[in-house]
Nucleic acid binder design. Sequence first.
DNA 1: AATATTTTTAC
DNA 2: TAAAAATAT
Length: 485
Amino acid sequence: MSPPIIVWFRRDLRLADNPALEAAVRAGGPVIPIYVLDETPGLRAPGAASLWWLDKSLASLSADLEAAGSRLVLRRGVAADIVLQLARETDAAEVLWNAVFDPGHGERDKVLAEALKREGAEPHRFNGGHLVNLDDVKTKAGGDFSVFTPFWRTARQAVIDGGSIPAPSALATPAAWPASDALSDWRLHPTAPDWSGGFSDWRPGEAGAHDALEVFTAQALRSYSTGRDRPAVNGTSRLSPHLHFGEISPKACWRAAQAAAHHGQASDGEAEKFLAELGWREFNAAIARGPDLAKTNFDRKFDAFPWRDDPQGLEAWKRGVTGYPIVDAGMRQLWTTGWMHNRVRMITASFLTKHLLIDWRLGEQWFWDTLVDADHASNAGNWQWVAGSGADASPYFRIFNPMLQSEKFDPPGDYIRRWVPELARLQAKVIHAPWTAAAPVLAGSGVRLGHDYPRPIVDHALARQRALDAYAVIRTAPGATPDED
DNA sequence: AATATTTTTAC
DNA sequence: TAAAAATAT
Protein backbone atom coordinates (compact mmCIF):
# COMPACT_ATOMS: atom_id res chain seq x y z
CA MET A 1 0.00 0.00 0.00
CA SER A 2 1.30 3.46 -0.87
CA PRO A 3 2.16 5.82 2.01
CA PRO A 4 -0.70 8.03 3.19
CA ILE A 5 -1.20 11.73 2.60
CA ILE A 6 -2.22 13.89 5.54
CA VAL A 7 -4.76 16.63 4.87
CA TRP A 8 -4.56 19.16 7.68
CA PHE A 9 -7.94 20.90 8.00
CA ARG A 10 -7.76 24.33 9.59
CA ARG A 11 -10.03 27.12 8.32
CA ASP A 12 -11.44 25.00 5.49
CA LEU A 13 -13.91 22.67 7.17
CA ARG A 14 -15.44 21.39 3.95
CA LEU A 15 -15.08 18.64 1.36
CA ALA A 16 -16.12 20.57 -1.78
CA ASP A 17 -13.94 23.26 -3.34
CA ASN A 18 -11.03 22.21 -1.17
CA PRO A 19 -7.79 22.34 -3.17
CA ALA A 20 -5.69 20.57 -0.51
CA LEU A 21 -8.16 17.72 -0.21
CA GLU A 22 -8.53 17.49 -3.98
CA ALA A 23 -4.77 17.17 -4.41
CA ALA A 24 -4.67 14.38 -1.85
CA VAL A 25 -7.50 12.47 -3.51
CA ARG A 26 -5.97 12.94 -6.92
CA ALA A 27 -2.69 11.46 -5.71
CA GLY A 28 -4.57 8.21 -5.26
CA GLY A 29 -3.14 6.99 -1.96
CA PRO A 30 -4.79 6.72 1.46
CA VAL A 31 -5.86 10.02 2.98
CA ILE A 32 -5.64 10.90 6.68
CA PRO A 33 -7.77 13.97 7.48
CA ILE A 34 -6.71 15.69 10.69
CA TYR A 35 -7.78 18.71 12.74
CA VAL A 36 -5.65 20.16 15.53
CA LEU A 37 -7.03 22.39 18.27
CA ASP A 38 -3.99 24.61 18.23
CA GLU A 39 -2.52 25.69 21.55
CA THR A 40 0.67 27.24 20.20
CA PRO A 41 1.79 29.94 22.66
CA GLY A 42 1.42 33.42 21.19
CA LEU A 43 -1.40 32.50 18.81
CA ARG A 44 -4.64 34.30 19.53
CA ALA A 45 -7.08 31.83 21.11
CA PRO A 46 -10.58 31.75 19.57
CA GLY A 47 -13.38 33.35 21.54
CA ALA A 48 -16.14 31.45 23.29
CA ALA A 49 -18.73 31.95 20.53
CA SER A 50 -16.23 30.78 17.90
CA LEU A 51 -15.57 27.63 19.89
CA TRP A 52 -19.31 26.97 20.07
CA TRP A 53 -19.41 27.08 16.29
CA LEU A 54 -16.22 25.06 15.86
CA ASP A 55 -17.70 22.25 17.93
CA LYS A 56 -20.66 21.85 15.55
CA SER A 57 -18.62 22.43 12.43
CA LEU A 58 -16.14 19.70 13.34
CA ALA A 59 -18.98 17.30 14.13
CA SER A 60 -20.42 18.04 10.69
CA LEU A 61 -17.09 17.63 8.89
CA SER A 62 -16.43 14.42 10.77
CA ALA A 63 -19.82 13.00 9.76
CA ASP A 64 -19.27 14.01 6.13
CA LEU A 65 -15.88 12.31 6.11
CA GLU A 66 -17.39 9.18 7.62
CA ALA A 67 -20.04 9.18 4.91
CA ALA A 68 -17.14 9.12 2.45
CA GLY A 69 -15.65 6.09 4.24
CA SER A 70 -13.06 8.14 6.09
CA ARG A 71 -12.59 9.82 9.48
CA LEU A 72 -11.43 13.05 11.05
CA VAL A 73 -8.50 12.58 13.42
CA LEU A 74 -8.66 15.11 16.27
CA ARG A 75 -5.70 16.21 18.34
CA ARG A 76 -4.98 19.19 20.56
CA GLY A 77 -1.73 20.90 21.52
CA VAL A 78 1.05 22.75 19.73
CA ALA A 79 -0.04 22.24 16.14
CA ALA A 80 3.35 22.08 14.46
CA ASP A 81 4.57 19.44 16.93
CA ILE A 82 1.43 17.38 16.54
CA VAL A 83 1.38 17.47 12.75
CA LEU A 84 5.04 16.52 12.61
CA GLN A 85 4.42 13.69 15.06
CA LEU A 86 1.46 12.44 13.03
CA ALA A 87 3.53 12.53 9.85
CA ARG A 88 6.19 10.39 11.52
CA GLU A 89 3.69 8.07 13.12
CA THR A 90 1.86 7.38 9.86
CA ASP A 91 4.92 7.55 7.63
CA ALA A 92 3.08 10.11 5.51
CA ALA A 93 4.46 10.98 2.08
CA GLU A 94 2.88 14.42 2.02
CA VAL A 95 1.11 16.90 4.29
CA LEU A 96 -1.33 19.25 2.54
CA TRP A 97 -3.13 22.32 3.83
CA ASN A 98 -4.82 25.50 2.69
CA ALA A 99 -3.15 28.78 3.68
CA VAL A 100 -4.24 30.85 6.68
CA PHE A 101 -2.84 34.39 6.91
CA ASP A 102 -3.60 35.29 10.53
CA PRO A 103 -0.69 36.53 12.66
CA GLY A 104 1.67 33.70 13.56
CA HIS A 105 0.07 31.12 11.29
CA GLY A 106 2.29 31.62 8.26
CA GLU A 107 5.42 31.58 10.41
CA ARG A 108 4.27 28.42 12.21
CA ASP A 109 3.56 26.72 8.87
CA LYS A 110 6.91 27.72 7.41
CA VAL A 111 8.87 26.19 10.29
CA LEU A 112 6.71 23.08 10.15
CA ALA A 113 7.23 22.76 6.40
CA GLU A 114 11.00 22.68 6.86
CA ALA A 115 10.72 20.06 9.60
CA LEU A 116 8.40 17.93 7.47
CA LYS A 117 10.83 18.05 4.56
CA ARG A 118 13.60 16.78 6.80
CA GLU A 119 11.34 13.88 7.73
CA GLY A 120 10.67 13.08 4.09
CA ALA A 121 7.06 14.22 4.19
CA GLU A 122 6.49 16.80 1.47
CA PRO A 123 4.48 19.83 2.61
CA HIS A 124 2.18 21.59 0.13
CA ARG A 125 0.23 24.77 0.69
CA PHE A 126 -2.86 25.71 -1.33
CA ASN A 127 -5.09 28.77 -1.65
CA GLY A 128 -8.46 27.55 -0.46
CA GLY A 129 -9.60 30.56 1.51
CA HIS A 130 -9.46 33.48 -0.90
CA LEU A 131 -10.68 34.66 -4.28
CA VAL A 132 -7.22 35.84 -5.25
CA ASN A 133 -3.65 35.10 -4.34
CA LEU A 134 -3.26 37.94 -1.86
CA ASP A 135 0.47 38.22 -2.45
CA ASP A 136 -0.11 38.87 -6.15
CA VAL A 137 -2.40 41.91 -5.82
CA LYS A 138 -0.03 44.86 -6.19
CA THR A 139 -0.22 48.50 -7.20
CA LYS A 140 1.35 49.53 -10.51
CA ALA A 141 4.39 50.57 -8.50
CA GLY A 142 4.59 47.08 -7.02
CA GLY A 143 3.43 48.04 -3.53
CA ASP A 144 0.49 47.03 -1.36
CA PHE A 145 -2.87 48.76 -1.66
CA SER A 146 -4.11 50.65 1.37
CA VAL A 147 -7.47 51.85 0.02
CA PHE A 148 -10.30 49.50 -0.81
CA THR A 149 -11.56 50.89 -4.11
CA PRO A 150 -8.31 50.71 -6.10
CA PHE A 151 -7.54 47.37 -4.40
CA TRP A 152 -10.82 45.90 -5.53
CA ARG A 153 -10.53 47.33 -9.05
CA THR A 154 -7.35 45.33 -9.41
CA ALA A 155 -8.26 42.25 -7.36
CA ARG A 156 -11.63 41.80 -9.01
CA GLN A 157 -9.90 41.30 -12.35
CA ALA A 158 -7.47 38.88 -10.75
CA VAL A 159 -10.07 36.46 -9.39
CA ILE A 160 -9.09 33.03 -10.61
CA ASP A 161 -11.97 30.60 -10.73
CA GLY A 162 -11.11 27.22 -12.11
CA GLY A 163 -14.70 26.09 -11.56
CA SER A 164 -16.06 24.18 -8.62
CA ILE A 165 -14.32 21.13 -7.22
CA PRO A 166 -16.89 18.49 -6.25
CA ALA A 167 -16.65 16.84 -2.85
CA PRO A 168 -14.97 13.46 -3.17
CA SER A 169 -17.53 10.67 -2.77
CA ALA A 170 -15.03 8.25 -1.25
CA LEU A 171 -11.63 8.60 0.39
CA ALA A 172 -9.06 5.79 0.48
CA THR A 173 -8.29 4.76 4.06
CA PRO A 174 -4.92 4.05 5.62
CA ALA A 175 -3.95 0.56 6.86
CA ALA A 176 -4.17 1.87 10.43
CA TRP A 177 -5.80 5.01 11.82
CA PRO A 178 -3.87 7.19 14.25
CA ALA A 179 -5.57 7.70 17.60
CA SER A 180 -8.05 10.56 17.83
CA ASP A 181 -9.45 12.60 20.69
CA ALA A 182 -13.20 12.52 21.20
CA LEU A 183 -14.71 15.86 20.16
CA SER A 184 -16.92 15.95 23.26
CA ASP A 185 -13.79 15.74 25.47
CA TRP A 186 -12.74 19.13 24.12
CA ARG A 187 -15.78 20.66 25.85
CA LEU A 188 -16.19 23.38 23.26
CA HIS A 189 -19.90 23.66 23.95
CA PRO A 190 -20.58 25.87 26.98
CA THR A 191 -21.94 24.32 30.16
CA ALA A 192 -22.86 25.80 33.52
CA PRO A 193 -24.23 28.03 32.20
CA ASP A 194 -25.04 27.09 28.63
CA TRP A 195 -25.46 30.58 27.20
CA SER A 196 -25.95 29.36 23.64
CA GLY A 197 -29.74 28.99 23.72
CA GLY A 198 -30.16 31.94 21.36
CA PHE A 199 -27.77 30.48 18.78
CA SER A 200 -30.30 27.97 17.48
CA ASP A 201 -30.93 29.70 14.13
CA TRP A 202 -27.46 28.73 12.99
CA ARG A 203 -26.61 25.53 11.19
CA PRO A 204 -22.84 25.13 11.29
CA GLY A 205 -21.27 22.82 8.75
CA GLU A 206 -20.89 22.49 5.00
CA ALA A 207 -24.52 21.55 4.28
CA GLY A 208 -25.80 24.47 6.35
CA ALA A 209 -23.42 26.80 4.54
CA HIS A 210 -24.65 25.77 1.11
CA ASP A 211 -28.26 26.08 2.22
CA ALA A 212 -27.56 29.59 3.50
CA LEU A 213 -26.00 30.53 0.17
CA GLU A 214 -28.93 29.11 -1.75
CA VAL A 215 -31.51 30.91 0.38
CA PHE A 216 -29.57 34.15 0.03
CA THR A 217 -29.18 34.07 -3.75
CA ALA A 218 -32.83 33.07 -4.17
CA GLN A 219 -34.23 35.70 -1.83
CA ALA A 220 -32.17 38.61 -0.52
CA LEU A 221 -29.69 39.09 -3.36
CA ARG A 222 -32.25 40.79 -5.64
CA SER A 223 -32.45 43.78 -3.28
CA TYR A 224 -29.10 43.38 -1.55
CA SER A 225 -27.84 46.94 -1.91
CA THR A 226 -30.66 48.34 0.21
CA GLY A 227 -31.83 45.23 2.07
CA ARG A 228 -28.37 44.67 3.55
CA ASP A 229 -28.74 47.90 5.50
CA ARG A 230 -32.02 46.99 7.17
CA PRO A 231 -31.30 45.18 10.44
CA ALA A 232 -34.94 44.18 10.98
CA VAL A 233 -34.97 42.31 7.67
CA ASN A 234 -33.14 39.20 6.45
CA GLY A 235 -31.32 41.22 3.85
CA THR A 236 -27.77 39.99 4.37
CA SER A 237 -26.20 36.70 3.35
CA ARG A 238 -25.49 35.55 6.92
CA LEU A 239 -22.59 33.63 5.39
CA SER A 240 -19.87 35.17 7.59
CA PRO A 241 -19.37 32.30 10.09
CA HIS A 242 -19.55 29.74 7.31
CA LEU A 243 -16.90 31.66 5.38
CA HIS A 244 -14.74 32.16 8.45
CA PHE A 245 -14.56 28.43 9.14
CA GLY A 246 -14.30 27.63 5.45
CA GLU A 247 -17.44 25.53 5.37
CA ILE A 248 -17.99 27.14 2.02
CA SER A 249 -15.39 28.70 -0.25
CA PRO A 250 -15.55 32.36 -1.25
CA LYS A 251 -15.34 31.18 -4.84
CA ALA A 252 -18.54 29.17 -4.41
CA CYS A 253 -20.21 32.37 -3.15
CA TRP A 254 -18.73 34.28 -6.07
CA ARG A 255 -20.03 31.76 -8.59
CA ALA A 256 -23.49 31.60 -6.99
CA ALA A 257 -23.95 35.38 -7.11
CA GLN A 258 -22.85 35.53 -10.73
CA ALA A 259 -25.07 32.62 -11.68
CA ALA A 260 -28.03 34.27 -9.97
CA ALA A 261 -27.44 37.44 -11.98
CA HIS A 262 -27.01 35.38 -15.14
CA HIS A 263 -30.34 33.64 -14.57
CA GLY A 264 -32.14 36.88 -13.84
CA GLN A 265 -32.65 36.23 -10.12
CA ALA A 266 -30.87 39.51 -9.40
CA SER A 267 -29.52 42.44 -11.39
CA ASP A 268 -25.83 42.69 -12.18
CA GLY A 269 -25.64 45.71 -9.89
CA GLU A 270 -27.06 43.86 -6.90
CA ALA A 271 -24.78 40.87 -7.51
CA GLU A 272 -21.82 43.20 -7.86
CA LYS A 273 -22.61 44.78 -4.50
CA PHE A 274 -22.38 41.37 -2.86
CA LEU A 275 -19.16 40.55 -4.71
CA ALA A 276 -17.71 43.78 -3.32
CA GLU A 277 -18.49 42.52 0.20
CA LEU A 278 -16.46 39.41 -0.62
CA GLY A 279 -13.92 41.96 -1.83
CA TRP A 280 -13.80 43.59 1.63
CA ARG A 281 -13.00 40.18 3.05
CA GLU A 282 -10.09 39.93 0.60
CA PHE A 283 -8.99 43.49 1.34
CA ASN A 284 -8.94 43.05 5.11
CA ALA A 285 -7.03 39.79 4.73
CA ALA A 286 -4.54 41.56 2.48
CA ILE A 287 -3.82 44.42 4.87
CA ALA A 288 -3.75 42.01 7.83
CA ARG A 289 -0.56 40.43 6.50
CA GLY A 290 1.38 43.31 8.07
CA PRO A 291 1.65 44.08 11.81
CA ASP A 292 -1.08 42.51 13.98
CA LEU A 293 -4.15 44.62 13.22
CA ALA A 294 -5.82 43.74 16.52
CA LYS A 295 -2.95 45.40 18.37
CA THR A 296 -1.47 48.05 16.10
CA ASN A 297 -3.05 51.12 14.56
CA PHE A 298 -2.83 50.83 10.78
CA ASP A 299 -2.40 54.60 10.85
CA ARG A 300 0.34 55.06 13.47
CA LYS A 301 -0.73 58.65 14.01
CA PHE A 302 -3.45 57.13 16.20
CA ASP A 303 -0.83 55.84 18.64
CA ALA A 304 -1.12 59.26 20.28
CA PHE A 305 -4.93 59.28 20.41
CA PRO A 306 -6.29 60.30 23.84
CA TRP A 307 -8.59 57.35 24.55
CA ARG A 308 -10.63 57.55 27.75
CA ASP A 309 -10.48 55.03 30.53
CA ASP A 310 -14.15 54.31 31.23
CA PRO A 311 -14.91 50.86 32.67
CA GLN A 312 -18.52 51.83 33.43
CA GLY A 313 -19.13 53.06 29.90
CA LEU A 314 -17.57 49.92 28.47
CA GLU A 315 -19.76 47.73 30.66
CA ALA A 316 -22.92 49.64 29.68
CA TRP A 317 -21.98 49.18 26.03
CA LYS A 318 -21.33 45.45 26.42
CA ARG A 319 -24.61 44.86 28.24
CA GLY A 320 -26.69 47.03 25.92
CA VAL A 321 -27.77 49.64 28.44
CA THR A 322 -26.37 52.86 26.96
CA GLY A 323 -29.78 54.50 26.61
CA TYR A 324 -29.45 54.64 22.82
CA PRO A 325 -31.99 52.07 21.58
CA ILE A 326 -30.27 51.11 18.30
CA VAL A 327 -26.94 50.62 20.09
CA ASP A 328 -28.51 48.56 22.87
CA ALA A 329 -30.50 46.47 20.39
CA GLY A 330 -27.32 45.60 18.53
CA MET A 331 -25.32 44.71 21.61
CA ARG A 332 -28.12 42.47 22.88
CA GLN A 333 -28.53 40.76 19.52
CA LEU A 334 -24.80 40.00 19.65
CA TRP A 335 -24.92 38.62 23.18
CA THR A 336 -28.00 36.51 22.48
CA THR A 337 -27.31 35.13 19.00
CA GLY A 338 -23.53 35.39 18.52
CA TRP A 339 -24.06 37.70 15.58
CA MET A 340 -24.90 41.34 14.90
CA HIS A 341 -26.21 42.92 11.72
CA ASN A 342 -23.45 44.71 9.82
CA ARG A 343 -25.11 48.13 9.81
CA VAL A 344 -25.52 47.92 13.57
CA ARG A 345 -21.92 46.76 14.00
CA MET A 346 -20.86 50.08 12.49
CA ILE A 347 -23.24 52.04 14.71
CA THR A 348 -22.21 50.29 17.94
CA ALA A 349 -18.51 50.48 17.07
CA SER A 350 -18.82 54.16 16.26
CA PHE A 351 -20.61 54.71 19.57
CA LEU A 352 -17.85 53.04 21.58
CA THR A 353 -14.99 54.80 19.83
CA LYS A 354 -16.54 58.23 19.17
CA HIS A 355 -19.23 58.78 21.80
CA LEU A 356 -17.44 57.02 24.66
CA LEU A 357 -13.91 57.58 23.29
CA ILE A 358 -12.98 54.07 24.39
CA ASP A 359 -10.03 52.40 22.63
CA TRP A 360 -11.25 50.38 19.63
CA ARG A 361 -9.12 47.44 20.83
CA LEU A 362 -11.51 46.88 23.75
CA GLY A 363 -14.45 46.72 21.37
CA GLU A 364 -12.55 44.46 18.99
CA GLN A 365 -11.83 42.06 21.84
CA TRP A 366 -15.49 41.97 22.90
CA PHE A 367 -16.59 41.17 19.35
CA TRP A 368 -13.82 38.58 19.13
CA ASP A 369 -15.22 36.81 22.19
CA THR A 370 -18.91 37.04 21.34
CA LEU A 371 -19.21 36.73 17.53
CA VAL A 372 -19.59 33.31 15.95
CA ASP A 373 -18.03 34.81 12.81
CA ALA A 374 -15.09 36.44 14.64
CA ASP A 375 -12.39 36.69 12.01
CA HIS A 376 -9.07 38.28 12.82
CA ALA A 377 -8.63 40.29 9.64
CA SER A 378 -12.26 41.33 9.15
CA ASN A 379 -12.90 42.13 12.80
CA ALA A 380 -9.74 44.14 13.43
CA GLY A 381 -9.81 45.75 9.97
CA ASN A 382 -13.40 46.89 10.33
CA TRP A 383 -12.93 48.15 13.89
CA GLN A 384 -10.03 50.24 12.73
CA TRP A 385 -12.05 51.45 9.77
CA VAL A 386 -14.76 52.73 12.11
CA ALA A 387 -12.29 54.18 14.62
CA GLY A 388 -10.58 56.07 11.83
CA SER A 389 -7.19 54.45 12.36
CA GLY A 390 -7.67 51.93 9.55
CA ALA A 391 -6.98 51.53 5.87
CA ASP A 392 -9.24 54.15 4.44
CA ALA A 393 -9.26 57.78 3.44
CA SER A 394 -11.18 57.43 6.70
CA PRO A 395 -12.23 60.93 7.69
CA TYR A 396 -11.92 61.11 11.45
CA PHE A 397 -15.08 63.19 11.49
CA ARG A 398 -17.25 60.28 10.37
CA ILE A 399 -19.23 60.12 13.60
CA PHE A 400 -22.45 58.17 13.29
CA ASN A 401 -25.52 59.81 14.76
CA PRO A 402 -27.28 56.86 16.43
CA MET A 403 -30.75 58.43 16.20
CA LEU A 404 -30.34 59.33 12.55
CA GLN A 405 -28.95 55.91 11.67
CA SER A 406 -31.81 54.29 13.53
CA GLU A 407 -34.47 56.35 11.74
CA LYS A 408 -32.82 55.75 8.41
CA PHE A 409 -32.27 52.02 8.60
CA ASP A 410 -34.94 50.83 11.05
CA PRO A 411 -37.72 53.34 10.32
CA PRO A 412 -40.58 51.46 12.01
CA GLY A 413 -38.32 50.54 14.96
CA ASP A 414 -38.94 46.82 14.52
CA TYR A 415 -35.32 45.86 15.17
CA ILE A 416 -35.37 47.85 18.40
CA ARG A 417 -38.65 46.25 19.49
CA ARG A 418 -37.21 42.80 18.83
CA TRP A 419 -34.09 43.31 20.98
CA VAL A 420 -35.14 45.98 23.47
CA PRO A 421 -38.56 44.67 24.51
CA GLU A 422 -38.97 47.25 27.26
CA LEU A 423 -39.45 49.82 24.46
CA ALA A 424 -41.71 47.60 22.34
CA ARG A 425 -44.83 49.66 22.92
CA LEU A 426 -43.29 52.96 21.86
CA GLN A 427 -44.37 54.44 18.55
CA ALA A 428 -41.93 54.71 15.67
CA LYS A 429 -41.86 58.48 16.12
CA VAL A 430 -40.16 58.29 19.52
CA ILE A 431 -38.61 54.82 19.72
CA HIS A 432 -35.28 55.97 18.26
CA ALA A 433 -34.86 58.58 21.01
CA PRO A 434 -37.23 57.85 23.88
CA TRP A 435 -35.88 60.67 26.05
CA THR A 436 -37.37 63.18 23.60
CA ALA A 437 -40.88 61.79 24.09
CA ALA A 438 -43.39 63.71 26.15
CA ALA A 439 -44.03 62.30 29.63
CA PRO A 440 -47.60 61.13 28.87
CA VAL A 441 -46.39 59.30 25.74
CA LEU A 442 -43.81 57.39 27.77
CA ALA A 443 -46.25 56.68 30.57
CA GLY A 444 -48.86 55.49 28.11
CA SER A 445 -46.36 53.00 26.70
CA GLY A 446 -45.33 51.76 30.11
CA VAL A 447 -41.80 53.16 29.93
CA ARG A 448 -40.27 54.84 32.96
CA LEU A 449 -36.98 56.31 31.77
CA GLY A 450 -34.24 55.65 34.28
CA HIS A 451 -36.13 52.60 35.58
CA ASP A 452 -37.34 50.36 32.75
CA TYR A 453 -34.79 51.73 30.33
CA PRO A 454 -31.79 54.00 30.96
CA ARG A 455 -31.47 57.61 29.94
CA PRO A 456 -28.58 58.18 27.47
CA ILE A 457 -25.25 57.72 29.25
CA VAL A 458 -23.78 60.54 27.14
CA ASP A 459 -25.37 63.43 25.30
CA HIS A 460 -24.95 63.06 21.55
CA ALA A 461 -24.06 66.67 20.73
CA LEU A 462 -21.55 66.91 23.60
CA ALA A 463 -20.00 63.54 22.77
CA ARG A 464 -19.70 64.46 19.12
CA GLN A 465 -17.86 67.67 19.93
CA ARG A 466 -15.65 65.86 22.45
CA ALA A 467 -14.69 63.34 19.76
CA LEU A 468 -13.89 66.09 17.25
CA ASP A 469 -11.70 67.78 19.87
CA ALA A 470 -9.91 64.52 20.62
CA TYR A 471 -9.22 63.92 16.95
CA ALA A 472 -7.89 67.46 16.65
CA VAL A 473 -5.21 66.48 19.20
CA ILE A 474 -3.63 63.90 16.92
CA ARG A 475 -4.26 65.90 13.77
CA THR A 476 -2.04 68.65 15.10
CA ALA A 477 0.29 66.40 17.11
CA PRO A 478 4.02 66.80 16.41
CA GLY A 479 5.02 64.53 13.56
CA ALA A 480 1.48 64.19 12.30
CA THR A 481 0.93 64.82 8.64
CA PRO A 482 -1.83 67.35 8.09
CA ASP A 483 -5.03 66.01 6.53
CA GLU A 484 -5.39 66.84 2.87
CA ASP A 485 -9.18 66.58 3.00
C1' DA B 1 -19.33 52.41 4.88
C1' DA B 2 -21.33 60.30 7.66
C1' DT B 3 -23.19 64.47 9.69
C1' DA B 4 -24.17 69.31 10.61
C1' DT B 5 -24.48 73.61 8.68
C1' DT B 6 -24.70 76.89 5.04
C1' DT B 7 -26.08 78.21 0.50
C1' DT B 8 -28.79 77.80 -3.52
C1' DT B 9 -32.77 76.55 -6.03
C1' DA B 10 -37.54 75.54 -6.82
C1' DC B 11 -42.05 76.30 -5.94
C1' DT C 1 -40.39 78.17 2.89
C1' DA C 2 -39.06 73.63 1.91
C1' DA C 3 -36.04 70.85 -0.53
C1' DA C 4 -31.78 70.11 -2.73
C1' DA C 5 -27.05 70.96 -3.22
C1' DA C 6 -22.73 72.40 -1.57
C1' DT C 7 -19.45 72.60 1.95
C1' DA C 8 -16.93 72.10 6.39
C1' DT C 9 -15.65 69.04 9.86
